[in-house]
């Protein structure tokens, strides 16, 4: 057998990415942890349907997103959201120098909060998770053109709010 990366190792490598994406969907840490665990289990169960020649992220992200949809359908959890940014220390509170990057992040997170869900989702997948248009289309199960129009609207909205010209 040629020594290719084990499926398990590829899953391990993307755990932080999965958690981030889960958090962007559900906005609660404990639910995000559940989502990641459920997704890992489902990914292992469905491993035979994964093409090892492709990137694993979009494939598992799609599983995770479907798990989230299942969870919300089953009468869960939205509605008692907490601020997604609450795991980030208030700027400067810990005595750390407030960097430009931190201010930028805070500003971006505020804009994301106000954004329509479908735009926020593509923006997070594209910019935070560095997915291609085609990969996002696969995760969301929508045409590539739809991804592009949502992403363009999201970026123009962001530019306007942040005064980017």
């Amino acid at each position: 057998m040629p020594p290719i990366d084990r499926f398990e190792d590829r899953l391990i490598a993307i755990l932080p990415n999965l958690h981030r994406f889960a958090l962007s969907l559900c906005r609660k840490h404990d639910i995000a942890e559940d989502l990641v665990q459920v997704s890992v289990i489902r990914a292992l169960e469905a491993r035979n349907r994964f093409d090892p020649e492709t990137r694993i992220e979009p494939w598992v992200f799609r599983i995770l997103r479907n798990a989230w949809i299942d969870m919300t359908r089953r009468g869960a959890t939205r509605g008692t959201e907490i601020e997604i940014g609450s795991d980030i220390d208030p700027a400067g509170a810990d005595g750390e120098k407030v960097t430009e990057a931190r201010l930028m992040l805070n500003a971006v997170e505020r804009v994301l909060e106000e954004m329509p869900e479908e735009q926020r989702e593509v923006l997070i997948l594209f910019c935070y998770e560095e997915m291609s248009y085609a990969e996002i289309a696969e995760i969301l199960d929508v045409p590539r053109g739809t991804v592009m129009s949502r992403l363009a609207r999201a970026r123009l909205g962001l530019a306007k709010k942040l005064g980017i010209k």
Partner: peptide, 13 residues
């Protein structure tokens, strides 16, 4: 801007 925010976000997580 978003890549910068993403890098900071990952650093802070």
């Amino acid at each position: 801007v978003l890549s910068m925010a993403a890098a900071e976000r990952n650093r802070m997580a």
